[in-house]
Structures are given as structure tokens and as C-alpha cells.
Design a protein around this nucleic acid. Structure first.
Lengths: 389, 389
DNA sequence: GCTACTAATGAAGTGCTCCTTCGTAAGTAT
DNA sequence: ATACTTACGAAGGAGCACTTCATTAGTAGC
């Protein structure tokens, strides 16, 4: 039981203001009557609420839609642009950043190439450049930022410390949340990248609308993200999704099947090898198809464990190899069909490389929704003065 | 985003009444001033709310606590006895039922022995007898029941139909929720038994207070229940937790290690065999210890998959073999320690055979809380006329 | 270009809920 | 018996939302 707090009249007003904001965010610009219908309030009350919100800067009037019968109604919209969010994807080879408004609408994106063995300072500097780039592209200042969410490879502690990262050696033990908080004058969230990717697919990608989603990052490294009941599942120690560590799940070495196929030209570096095999498989090469078969055999074991355990609505295939989803999806479905009680939908990522940044943005939007736009939670409305442009 | 509904003054009153009820349920009998403090309302308002609730029958006055300074304050309590819930555990060999008040406090319990191959009608009649027994023991009528929650072995569809049950052949395809609704004049919920057991352990058993719990039913049949973020996890098709179906998890045949041990007297029926091995292991018999070791080896594989995937706070060992938890816990912890990123607490069930009935009650209480005692949900308060005794 | 119709606006009046304040009541300590 | 402590109950006041009605600003038809 969460709240046992009652409230007085001003709380009622707050509730109604929140309801109005939610309605406007969901349904775009609305006339007073439409808004009144949605919120269940009378028109005069709605007007008063909207006036107050307009005074605070949360809501503004837009030109009425012409061509209607009768007197044209004034229309209002939520000012999603009164605050800004940043999402960052910290990968081994790239740092991506995106800036969005409060609705998660992307306004600017940047990318900074890095190398896995770059020293710590260089990598942090690249993050700073990526975010600054977004601010510059969209003409905002760092002080306009309300919230920054970052996704990184590796196991991230509940407090935002990187426990371990195979892809970025220098990252180990870093207090990433602390470093980011020093760099940017706003609240900072840090999460594992696969979890954010899962969230993005569940919100705007291949699994839109699903409440229970399993995201598989298939690539040279394997990773998973779980969305359960619409929320990112972290686990008690924020270590959920590490099934790749289990030898019996046969994930850890699964990519080797693709790397060691005969169609890979000798001397190809490991990181490019799988691409040859997947491409050859698409062209029907028997050796490549066999290798892909063995790969999917292994992939399906861990996946079946997840599906049997969680019974998700959708399984999303993301990560580097998901560019070859056409080659992988069929075989994977077939094996899951045999192993599982109920076959979930199995789809390829719809967001590709943007997955993690998008997820970071969505994660930030969620955070905001929970802490600002939800009754019975946090300081509620009039806190972050929405600055006019 | 759930609700975009605003509200008027009466809604505010409803909110405050709900807050009062929640406070009273959480903290037992309270004086007006104490209640006012908890709800954040002024004393006069609290009084008015309490008077209204008393008039509706939700709240009643109890004698003031004597021996205090100043004028003794009137005290009020939530009338948990104004409605009743029934939990039913439908197992292969036993039907258990329990009757509780609205707080989940058990008032009566009964058990009806059945046989796995009993015909459908006989089993349904046994359920009726078990519940009637509870009603008789506590002196209530069937019309006092608000809600019945039943747990059964097997896969249960979201609508309460039994898809499949290995333990109760006659159960397959049965519209259990429908049958129960015909038998009892109240709302009916049906869920898988391991999930309910998990809920009970998370609410009042070995994992009390934990939000993420994995419950392992270890016995002649294996089963699992997941509590995620404090709620029962069903999955999209209500088929979550069926990891036993995966050969690589090595659960399905795991009990064979115990059945085929040399310490089991020849001719022992399969269902009693494991008991001999576990008992011998407790006495230090080397052959039995080796068999238990092999059993836990297998058990640990599927368990590690669950732990790695979900990172729960607690793993609870329940089911028939959990009576020998002292023999199992140590080896299981040791193997999980090696396999997992973070070792969760591993504990034996605290509720034993009562697990599922308790879980059914807790499930019913949860349902009530969500649909009756939560703002923004359902018809809210004054619906089920709380009948006076 | 004028009139009829439509739909939104704005202001006035009403009712409900909660708040604060103050005098009264019912106990215990000295 | 008196003083002190704590709770109760009534009265007055403020805030919020509701309903109602006259007014305004458009479109459609003649």
C-alpha cells in the first residue's frame, strides 16, 4: 500500500491539472470542450485549470482549426518544448546522443566514434561532445536539460556504477552516474544498454504496445533486456538479463559457429567474420546455412528458457546480427515453436542502431511521467519552472 | 498513461475515505488524531470521513485504550470482517480451502482428500465440501463471500480455463472459473498453484517484503512461480514459469536421481522413493549424498537460468522435497554461487503445505485492494454493502 | 449583404469539502 | 479539590467545481 495521504482542495486542483496535462499529451491539441469531455470536468473548471497551466507555462494556445460550424473553439496544447531530455548510448565503438522534448520527440542526434580501448578521459570527453553537439544542433543550452539518461554496456549497479564491462575495459568500477552528474547540471540516470533497447522497442519499435517483451541483442556479444508489465526489469541487484553467463544456455560461444564457417575468407578479423556467413546464407550457400543453423540451435536454447519462463508477447531480435534477421527469424521461430508452450511473436528490431538512444529517451520520459505527471508521487507539478523559449 | 479523468469534490471525499481505510488497515485501531496525522487531514475532516465510513459499515468504534493522560480518545478500526474471501488449493491428492476476512486473516481451514484420477464431478464436489466446511466452521453463509481465488496445478488460461494438467488428468480443458462461478455466488479467480505459493511466500512467508521472488516447487513434479515487482507474473498467455519444459534446464528428469538411489528399498512406489534418499542423505549416507548431489546439479541449472535472468532478491524452495531443505539448500547455494552474477538469498518455504491456500487468499486480497481500495480503479468504495454481523 | 443557425465563451450563483479557531468535556497527577 | 492534559464538537471562512444563462463569433442559406 503506497499512499495513505489524503488531500485538500488544492490537491484536487493538482489532480485535475495533471489529468488535463495527461489528456493533452495523449491526444495532442484539444479544444476546451474536448478536454472537458476527456477529463470529465465541466467546461468552466477546465478553463480555469487550463488558464492556470498556461500561466505556469505548461500549456499554450494554438490557432483554432478553421472550417467548423459555429464559433471556432480555442485550442490548447501541452508545451512539450518547455523542457528537454537527453539520451546517450555509450557503446564500444560509438557514442550516440539524442535530445528530445518532454514527449520524447527527437530534436537532434549526434554520434562520436570512439575505440574500445580509449582511456577513460577521452571517452568521457566524447560523451560531452556528443551531448554538446545535440544542444548546438537544436539551439539549446545545457541549463535547458531536465534529465539525462545513459545506456552503457556492462552490468550497472542500482546506483549507476559500472560493475563490469567486457566491451569497455576502462569502464570497470566507474561511478558513471557521478561522472555524468558532474558534467551536466541535471538529474542523471544510468542503465544497461540492452534494457533501454528493449524499452525502445516496446514503446515505439517492433513490440509497440506489448507489456511483456524480451529483447535479444544478437551480435558478437550477446545481451538481453526485459520489459515486464511495461517497465524495465532490473532485478534486485540490477543484474537481470545475464543469462549469457550460463553455459547450458549455450549463448556465450554461439557466435563462433558463424565466425568459423568455411565461407569466411582466411585472415578476416573476428569482428567481420559473421557478416560473411550471414550474407552467404542469404544467398543460399549450404555451408553458411548449416553454420547459421547451428548458431540458431544454440541461440534458441537460451531464448526458449526466457520464453518459457516469462511468456512474453513479443521477442525482438536486435543488435548487429539483426540486420540479417531475414536469415535468422525463420529458423529461430521454428525451434521455439518446438520448445515452447506458446510461441510468442518473434520480430526484428525496428529501430536498429538507434535502439539504445531511443530507449534512453523513453526511459527518461518514463521517469518524468512517474515523478512529475503522476498523482501521489514526488513533488508534482509546479516544480521545474518551464522556461519560455 | 492510465487515467486522464479529473474529479469533483465528491471524488476528493472518496480519496480521503480511501486514505483513511488504508491507514486503518495498515496500522490497526487508531484514534482520530492519529488517523488525522497519518492521512494528513485535519481532525474535523477526519471525523467526518470516519463518521461516513462508520455509517456505511466499513469502520467501527472500539473501546478507548485506558490509562492515558487527558481525555481518552475514541478509537476506530477497519471492519475486516464485513466481507469474506475464500482461497482454494486444488492439488492431486488434496483439496484445501481457507476462509479469511478482508485483511487476509485466516478464520477457518479445511482439507478434503481426493485421488488424482477421481472423475470431474467428484473433484468439483470435494471443492464444494471444502468451502462449505470453511463456511460452517466460521459460521458464515455462502452469501457472505465476496471473492473466491483458486490455485490449481497445470497451465491456466487468462480466462481461467485449464489448458493442461499433468497431475489431474480430468482437469484438461475444463472451464474451471466457470464451474466455480456456478457453484459460488461471488467473483472467482483462477491461477496456477505455484504462482500463488510464490505470492504467499513473498507476502507472509520466507520472502516477506521482497519485490522480486522466484519460487521453486521441488517435488515429484517441478514447478515455478514468479513474483516480479511485487505482483504475480503470468505472462502474455498466462504460461510463464514453465521452464521445466526445456530439456537443457535439466529439471524434468532431475527427481529420477533421488528415485533410483541404492538406499531406496526395492519395490518402493515412485512417489515415496525420494523420501528415503533424502532421509538417508540427512544421516550422511554416501550413496544418498551423491544422489542428492546429482539432483541438485540438475536443479541448479534451471534455477541459475532463472536467477541470471531475473536477479530476484530471494529464491524460495517449496514443494514436497522442501521438507528436506536442510539437505538441499547448502549444495544449491554453492552451485548458484558459482553460476550466478549475484547470489540471491536461498531459503526454505516457511508455509509448507499451506502455501497455495495462503497464496490464494493473498491473491484475493490483492485483487480487492486493487479494485476497491485504490483510487482510479473500478467502482470504488460504497459498492459491496458491508453487511453487519 | 442580411438573417438564421451552431457552437463556444464568460459571468453569476450555488453547493460541497476542507481548514482554522475556540470553548467544552473527560480523564489523570498533585 | 484543583490544575493539567488531551480530545471533542461547533462555528465561521476559503477554495474548488458544478449548473445555468446571456453573449459572441463563426458558417449556411436566401
Amino acid at each position: 500500500m503506497a499512499n495513505v495521504r489524503g488531500g485538500d482542495l488544492s490537491r484536487l486542483r493538482q489532480l485535475n491539472a495533471l489529468a488535463a496535462i495527461r489528456a493533452l499529451r495523449e491526444a495532442g491539441p484539444l479544444t476546451l470542450t474536448a478536454l472537458a469531455e476527456r477529463t470529465g470536468l465541466s467546461r468552466p473548471s477546465t478553463k480555469e485549470v487550463v488558464d492556470e497551466l498556461a500561466g505556469l507555462g505548461w500549456v499554450e494556445e494554438v490557432p483554432p482549426s478553421p472550417g467548423t460550424m459555429g464559433r471556432p473553439a480555442r485550442r490548447y496544447r501541452f508545451r512539450a518544448d518547455c523542457g528537454h531530455l537527453v539520451g546517450v548510448d555509450i557503446g564500444g565503438h560509438n557514442i550516440r546522443a539524442a535530445l528530445s522534448d518532454l514527449d520524447g520527440e527527437i530534436l537532434a542526434e549526434t554520434r562520436q566514434p570512439v575505440r574500445p580501448d580509449d582511456p577513460l578521459e577521452e571517452r568521457l570527453a566524447a560523451i560531452e561532445r556528443a551531448v554538446s553537439g545535440c544542444l548546438a544542433l537544436s539551439g539549446r543550452a545545457a541549463s535547458d536539460l531536465w534529465l539525462l539518461a545513459a545506456g552503457t554496456t556492462g552490468v550497472v549497479s542500482p546506483e549507476g556504477r559500472v560493475q563490469f564491462s567486457a566491451a569497455i575495459p576502462a569502464w570497470r568500477g566507474l561511478d558513471l552516474a557521478g561522472e555524468l552528474a558532474r558534467m551536466f547540471p541535471c538529474e542523471v540516470l544510468v542503465e544497461n544498454d540492452s534494457r533501454l533497447a528493449a524499452l525502445a522497442e516496446a514503446r515505439r519499435g517492433a513490440a509497440r504496445g506489448a507489456r511483456d517483451v524480451v529483447f535479444l541483442h544478437v551480435g558478437r556479444r550477446m545481451g538481453t533486456g526485459l520489459i515486464i508489465d511495461g517497465k524495465v526489469h532490473r532485478g534486485f541487484g540490477a543484474a537481470a538479463g545475464e543469462i549469457v553467463m550460463l553455459p547450458e544456455a549455450r549463448w556465450y560461444d554461439a557466435p563462433d559457429h558463424l565466425n568459423t564457417c568455411a565461407v569466411v575468407p582466411p585472415g578476416t578479423p573476428d569482428e567481420d567474420a559473421a557478416g560473411f556467413t550471414l550474407a552467404a546464407a542469404r544467398d543460399g550457400d549450404p555451408a553458411a546455412l548449416a553454420a547459421v543453423g547451428r548458431y540458431v540451435d544454440d541461440l534458441a536454447v537460451g531464448t526458449a528458457a526466457m520464453v518459457l519462463l516469462l511468456d512474453p508477447q513479443v521477442v525482438v531480435l536486435g543488435g548487429g546480427f539483426s540486420r540479417s534477421a531475414d536469415v535468422l527469424l525463420g529458423p529461430l521461430r521454428e525451434r521455439l515453436e518446438r520448445a515452447c508452450v506458446r510461441l510468442p511473436e518473434v520480430r526484428a528490431s525496428a529501430l536498429g542502431d538507434e535502439c539504445v538512444v531511443m530507449g534512453a529517451i523513453d526511459y527518461a520520459v518514463d521517469h518524468l511521467d512517474r515523478h512529475l505527471f503522476t498523482p501521489d508521487a514526488g513533488p508534482s507539478l509546479p516544480l521545474p519552472q518551464p522556461a519560455g523559449r
